[in-house]
Each structure stands twice: as structure tokens, then as C-alpha cells.
Simulated scan of single mutants.
Amino acid sequence: MSAPTHSIHTVFSIETYDVSKKFDRWLMRLESAFEVFLVPNEKKAAYLLHYMGPDAYDVLCDKVSPENPNNMEYNDLIKEMKQHYNPEPLEIAENFRFLQRKQNEGESVQQYLTTLQRLATTCKFGDYLKKALRNQFVFGLRTQNIQSRLLEMKDLTIERALEVAISMETSARDAAQLHRSNVASASVNSVNCEKGNNDRFSSKRAFAKSSSNNSKNVNFKNYCYRCGSSGKGLFQK
């Protein structure tokens, strides 16, 4: 049997730049495509101008006017695009935003850490990055039990903190689900028990009523109050 084949793109293709997204992220994909398709350096500017899309191209033309973008070098074009779509953030403001981020209601610990990692990319933490992530991760947790457990641990790393937090979060969720199941089961059993008692009470009441009716239907005039005989001719002359 022949080995499976994989389709290989032989024509350069990438989506045009969405101006609502980060330019740096799109540029990384573009330059990866340059490597895959072996685009020569002298052609990169033309590819960039084509795939940046009409909106970004209009912005670029306005920025470099009266110069023509088609006559500019690739690195100069990139510089102009970054200045407009990815301006250098203010480090203090970015750090403040990072330190203000707490875990939101309904947000998992994994989602919370992912958000912190994204915010940290503009904080210039350098070698302090992992400690900054660990500290803010622990400080911002909503669940006190998880937070207390992490605060007790020595030499805690962000990797270990996430592992413990996920484990405790999962255990708490499973325990809550089990509790809800037990409560629901107990409620059903209570209803069934009450129904059974009501059925037995109804049966006894029906039996008592039936006995009472039977007693009323007896013709006591046909019975002797002394011997209990039911003969009709006992008192007849």
C-alpha cells in the first residue's frame, strides 16, 4: 500500500492584513510564508504591499506622502506600518493594567493565566517574567482555598501553581456536581416515599369506609339479640 500523500501549496498565499488585529502577529506569518515559498529579498516589498490589503495600503500612502510606497525598501515599509498599527506602549501603564487584572467570575484558572501572559508581553519584565506571572496569578485568584494552598507552597513556580490550581478547580467542580446529584436523588426518594405513605393511608381509609358501609347494610331485625340466630321464624307466631 502506498504511503499517504500530503498536498503542498506551490503558489504563495496568505490572508490580507486585518487592521483590527495586531500587525506584528500578521507580519510573523507573512515572513514565515516568505521562507516557505523562498521569496527573494528584492520581492518582499511587493508582496507586503499586495497582501497588506486596501485599508492598510491607504493608511501607508497617507503616512509616507508625497513619497510613493512602491519605491520604498521593505524594512522602511515595515517601520511605517509598525509605528501606526503597533505603537510602542507605555511601560508603566501596561504594568498597571497587568497588576489590576484579577480572575473574573466564570473564568477558569487556565484562561486567567493565558490573559496574564498576553498582558505581560508589553510589560518588559525580562528575566522577572515568570515570577511576575506567578505572583499576579496567585494574588488574583477568586477561590480562597486555591489561593491559600498556593501561598503555603515553597519555591512555587508558575508551572506548578497552574498545575495545583487546575487540580483543585477540577476537584471542586466534580464535588459540586456529585453533591447536586445526591440532592436530586434524595429529593426523588422523598417524593416516592411520601407517595407510598399516601397510597397506604388511602387504602386504609378506603377499607375502613367499606367496612362501615357493610355494617350499615346489615338488617339487625333478622337477628336474635340473645342467641344471634338469623332465622326469620324465630319470633313469628
Rank of each mutant, 00 (worst) to 15 (best):
M1W: 06
A3G: 04
P4F: 11
H6T: 12
S7L: 15
H9K: 11
T10W: 07
D18F: 09
F23I: 10
F23E: 07
D24E: 13
W26N: 06
P40I: 10
S65W: 09
E67D: 13
P69W: 01
I78K: 12
H84R: 05
N86P: 02
E88L: 05
L90V: 15
A93R: 07
N104C: 04
E105M: 08
G106F: 06
S108T: 14
S108N: 03
Q111Y: 04
Y112D: 02
Y112Q: 04
L113S: 02
T114H: 03
Q117L: 05
F125T: 02
L133E: 02
Q136T: 02
F137Q: 00
G140K: 00
Q144F: 00
N145G: 02
I158M: 09
V164I: 15
A165P: 01
I166A: 04
M168Y: 05
M168W: 03
S171H: 08
R173D: 11
Q177R: 14
Q177S: 15
S181R: 14
A184R: 14
S187W: 07
N198C: 03
K204N: 08
A206S: 13
K209T: 09
S210R: 12
N217A: 15
N217V: 11
R226F: 12
G231L: 10
K237C: 14
K237Q: 13
K237S: 15
